[in-house]
């Protein structure tokens, strides 16, 4: 564990708490893409299936349980409890165009041709693109509630900090993980536009609005 990875994981944790806070406080999931949340649940389930096969640490186990549990809870909130506030009309990204290439890529580019390694690679590829429905929805709405932008910032910063963690681990331990590195780079890259607007508007006290 190093400071970059710990901060990244805490940002990831924070992003989920911000999202839960947004839904509970406003009693609405308006502006949140159900498709992205569904993809995250799939990402966590396919990646953390190793919970049953390997023991890493108490930290690792608790985090995995939290991420699986909270992602399923968010799916429940959006699909059942606050279903009326969910707006599928704006959530139009075609996730099959994401799922199929990720599944194919996982079959071809993995560390071992075993069910667990294929699922792990799939989860890493899928995580890289899972934010696309959300960003697509944001684009269509043209604006976002401030708390939603804090959620997105924390979520994007998490993978960005993992990049620093990987640089550090390569230098300190000779650690190499090409699959996670390339996917993580793509994932962070998708946030570039968002980070720019977040920095120039939200952090200066303005509303998050996209130029018309």
């Amino acid at each position: 564990m190093n400071i970059f990875r710990l901060t990244a994981d805490l940002m990831h944790l924070a992003s989920i708490f911000i999202l839960l806070l947004k839904i509970q406080k406003t009693r609405s999931c308006a502006g949140i893409s159900f498709k992205s949340q569904l993809l995250y649940a799939l990402v966590f389930i396919t990646r953390y299936i190793d919970l049953f096969f390997y023991w890493v640490s108490l930290y690792n186990t608790l985090m995995k349980i939290f991420f699986i549990g909270s992602s399923l809870y968010i799916v429940y909130l959006m699909q059942v409890k606050f279903r009326a506030t969910n707006d599928p009309v704006l959530d139009t990204f075609r996730i099959e165009y994401l799922l199929a290439p990720c599944a194919l890529l996982a079959l071809v580019a993995n560390y071992a041709f075993t069910a667990q390694e294929i699922l792990w690679a799939f989860s890493v590829y899928l995580e890289a693109g899972a934010i696309l429905p959300q960003l697509f929805m944001l684009q269509r709405r043209g604006e976002a509630e401030t708390i939603t932008t804090h959620y997105l910032f924390a979520l994007g910063a998490y993978r960005g900090l993992y990049l620093l963690n990987w640089i550090y681990r390569y230098w300190a331990e000779g650690y190499v993980d090409w699959i996670a590195w390339i996917a993580g780079l793509v994932q962070t890259g998708l946030y570039t536009d968002f980070f720019y607007i977040y920095y120039t508007k939200v952090l200066k006290g303005q509303k998050f609005e996209l130029p018309a």
């Binding site: 990875r5 994981d9 990646r47 190793d50 890493v56 995995k64 560390y111 993980d177 090409w178």
Partner: peptide, 10 residues
């Protein structure tokens, strides 16, 4: 060895 049989990151 390329990659790991065991992933310690989240």
């Amino acid at each position: 060895k390329n990659g790991k049989a065991h992933h310690d990151e989240l």
